[in-house]
Structures are given as C-alpha cells and as structure tokens.
Design a protein around this nucleic acid. Structure first.
Length: 438
RNA sequence: CGGGGCGUGGCGCAGUCUGGUAGCGCACCUGCUUUGGGAGCAGGGGGUCGUUGGUUCGAAUCCAGCCGCCCCGACCA
C-alpha cells in the first residue's frame, strides 16, 4: 500500500478528550474516530489491527474445537423474557421498538439466542459436547463509557457457548477454553493472567478473568509474582485431560478485588512475591450449569431416554478492547510498538527522497519484491521531509522500518530499523529483504 | 445516577469576568528556498462562536431551557 493513496489521518496534536496512552495513540495514529460517546468508527489502519486480532482469536477457537457461526446484533425481547433477563438487565440494555411496536434490543450478549438455536436443533446426548461461537458487535449502554475502545458502548466480542451432558463434561469444555485463551493472548504478545473472578449478573459458580497488568486498568488485582513471567505458549493436545495443566496454571494465588481474600493472600504468597496492580480484563469465562437451559427448555435425551437440561458455559474475549490493551502494554513516547502478530503492516518502507531516480527505483524494487515474498508493506512515498516520515512511522508502530535514502543507495545499502529495540542495520538490499523474511 | 468541567475554522487553544460584530499555533492551498528526526519566508482560503429563546441600539460575551462531550465515583468483554 502506498501511503500517498492510503487513508491515514494522523494527528500531530493530542485530542484533549483522550486520557490514556492507548486512546491518545489510536486517535493520533488515525486508527479510530469517535462518532458518539463510546462509539467509534474504525479507520483503515485500526481495522487492519482489529481484523488480525480477530483472526488469531478465531484460529485458537477453532483449534480448541469451537465452531463458528454468526448471530445477529438485533434480538427479540421475547427470548429474554423466557430467561427472565429482560427485566433484570436494566438500563444497560439498549431497547428499541420496530414499526409494529415489537420490543427488540441490541444484543449485549447471546446466551438466550444461542440456547434457542441449540434447543431447536439438538435432541440427543449423542450430539454433545458442542461449543459454538461467534465474533459480533455488542452494545451495552454503559453508564460511563471511557478510555476509547477500552470501554466503549459498541464493541466487538468473541463469545463462545458450550453445551455438555453433565458437569464433568462442562468442566472439560471450560478447561479447553481456559487453555485456548492463554494461547490466544500469548500469540498477541500479551502476558494475560488467569484470575478467580466474580461471576456477575451472568451467574454460575466457576469463573476466571484473564487480566493484562497495566496502570490504566480498571480493576484492582492481586497475584503471585511468578505469574508475571510465565510462558503460556506451549503446544496443547485438546484431546487429553487438561485438568492437571489447569491445576498447575492456577496453583498460585491470583484474584480480582471482588474475589480477593487478604488473609489467604498473606498466608499463601511470600511478602516479597505479592503483587497488587491494576489490570485490564481481556477475557472472561463462566460455567453456569443449567441457568439458561432449564428455564428455556434446552434439553436432550440422555442415555436412559429421559430428558436432561444441558450444562452450559460461556466464554468471552473483548476483541476491540484488545486493540487498546495491546497498545497499553506496548508503546513508547514516540508511538505504538505493534507485536508482529497483530501489526497492521509488516514493514514501513520509507523513501527519503521522492523524485531522486536512484532512490525511487530502489524503493519500487523493494516494494515489489517484498510484496511478492508475501509481506504487507506500507510505502511512504509522500513528498514530505525525512523527519515527518520518521515521526509518522514511529507513531503507527510497524515492527520494521526499511529506510531508503540517497546516501545509502550510493553506497549500495539500505537501512533497516527495528521499531521495538531501535536497532539499525545498514544492509545490502538483498540482505535486508532476507532479514525481513526471517 | 450523584459530583465536577467543557462546547469558538479539521486539531489544540485565547477572547466571555468588564457586551461594540472573532484571533493565535498546527493543519490546508499557491509560490520560492530547503531536504536523514514533524523546515523557513511570502501570499491565501475556511468559522450561523453547540442549540433555542430572552435582555439590549448591539450578544461568542449577560439570563433561561435544551442538546452534546469529557473527568471523578458505584457496574462491566
């Protein structure tokens, strides 16, 4: 993509509304534009990141055996009356009326709808277990939206729902998602810590939040220091019994403030290993048994022929929130530093002197060849000064900058700069291309 | 929902107290110079001052209502 033909409305000055780094940087880097309180348009650069995060989430869900579908954003109130949540949910639910005066709502979550879909399709225990998920926009009319996409009213969420015959099966489904979540966040370069959590209005009796530590996080969390350096990225065989692994992963103390037990914390964690910090919740998993299946009649025939309400769990990942969370975890004074796995482009190619035939030619060769090699490039071919180009490229945080100027071209080299470390390499073009393809 | 604050060219702000017909920086357009870390000079375009009503000879400025947005708290991916 040539920057001269892209749509990248960057800002030099910081919008006064933005309080935290990720919000400021997303606005400055031209990733989003606010259209109402807590509602954002995703501009091309932001959309690219959102899509890459979504794809990682999708791949790990699929790997863990979940099956993707897509439910609508607008739901009928009748379903919510069946579960009893139409009245319970309160003002956070955006309620609307259609032209026939039917009560509709913009879905804040999909337990009712998936339970409805499930009960119409599945009659036998032989069809279990199943885990169905979708990645869809949600709307929660938050009292106070803030921090950009971290607490928006409209947000993109992956929500999965598991159906099992009994509690033991539900536990296995829960464990699969637990591990899949750790893998998902690790792929994005995030250190997510699983913490015992309150179940909130969704209900149930087993729940974990996945927390990224950041000063700007909204919840207070407490954990053993070993969690800060843990490697979650190992290969998983989802067919094996995951319980021993889960037991190991949750052996040390980690809890959000709702579940925090100061006495236990003091007793179980040596004082110099105790960590209390702010955290960003990027995922939340629940086991809630028959909370929805019983009132909504989601039953299957068991081995003995008698109907039994299915055991359910739900599993959420805040996809759009992750964009902000990753920036909170990875930026510096000059801008964003994208982990390679979610970067909007792999390489920023900087032409320091458009109009110089030798430089133009070198750039256009690199542009063509690197694209042919499968890399996504953003080529800054604008007629701007070098400083402006460096500043833009640092701001938008692509992992590599490939800098081509007249001096280097004369000596047969180009410069490769690593955004994260600041390391620079003067290399022959072929060597630079090879390094980028590693 | 309680408390606080803000709405003036695309962005950041001054002007409001003390009413007299709108200004600065950045961005944008034109020209010249410049060219490895957000250039300089010169010229230029763009604003019903959130909105409605009131007071006044006259309102960005004073008064009232409404709308929008932000911050602090209790709830949540």
């Amino acid at each position: 993509m040539k920057l001269s033909q892209f749509f990248l409305p960057t800002l030099k000055e910081v919008p006064s509304d933005a309080q935290i780094a990720s919000h400021r940087l997303m606005l400055r880097a031209g990733m989003i534009r606010q259209t109402s309180a807590g509602i954002y348009a995703w501009l091309p650069l932001g959309l690219r990141v959102l899509r890459r995060i979504e794809q990682i989430v999708r791949e790990e869900q699929n790997r863990a055996g979940a099956i993707e579908l897509l439910m609508p954003t607008i739901q009928s109130a009748d379903l919510w009356r069946e579960s009893g949540r139409y009245d319970d949910y309160g003002d956070e639910m955006l309620r609307i009326t259609d032209r026939h005066q039917r009560d509709m709502l913009f879905g804040p979550t999909n337990e009712e709808m998936i339970t409805d879909i499930f009960r119409h399709a599945v009659r036998s225990y032989r069809d279990l277990p199943r885990n169905l998920y979708h990645i869809q926009w949600k709307f929660r009319d938050e009292i106070r939206p803030r921090f950009g996409v971290m607490r928006g009213r409209e947000f993109l969420m992956k929500d999965a729902y598991s159906f099992d015959l009994d509690a033991a099966g539900a536990r296995r489904s829960y464990n699969r998602m637990f591990v899949a979540y750790l893998k998902t966040f690790a792929r994005m370069g995030l250190q997510a810590i699983p913490m015992a959590a309150d179940t909130g209005p969704i209900g149930g009796d087993l729940s974990h939040e996945f927390i990224i530590l950041a000063d700007t996080g909204e919840s207070e969390v407490f954990c053993h220091a070993d969690y800060l350096a843990r490697d979650w990225a190992g290969d998983i065989d989802y067919e094996t019994d995951l319980q021993p692994l889960i037991d190991d992963l949750t052996a040390l103390y980690a809890a959000t403030d709702e579940k925090h037990d100061a006495a236990r914390f003091a007793a179980e964690v040596p004082q110099d290993q105790q960590r209390s910090a702010r955290g960003i919740e990027v995922g939340h998993i629940f086991y809630f048994g028959t909370k929805y299946s019983a009132p909504m009649g989601a039953v299957v025939a068991g081995p003995d022929g008698n109907d039994i309400a299915v055991e359910m769990g739900s599993y959420g990942i805040g996809v759009s929130r992750l964009v902000g969370a990753i920036i909170e975890a990875s930026h510096d004074d000059n801008g964003i530093i994208w982990p390679a796995s979610v970067a909007p482009f792999d390489v920023g190619l900087i032409n320091l002197k458009p109009g110089d035939d030798a430089v133009d030619e070198q750039c256009s060769q690199l542009y063509t060849q690197l694209q042919a090699a499968g890399l996504e490039l953003l080529y800054d071919d604008r007629d701007e000064r070098a400083g402006a180009k460096f500043a833009t490229m640092d701001l938008i945080g692509l992992p590599w900058q490939l800098i081509v100027g007249p001096k280097g071209v004369k000596g047969g080299t180009v410069e490769l700069k690593n955004r994260a470390t600041g390391e620079r390499f003067d290399l022959a073009p072929a060597a630079a291309m090879q390094k980028l393809q590693e």
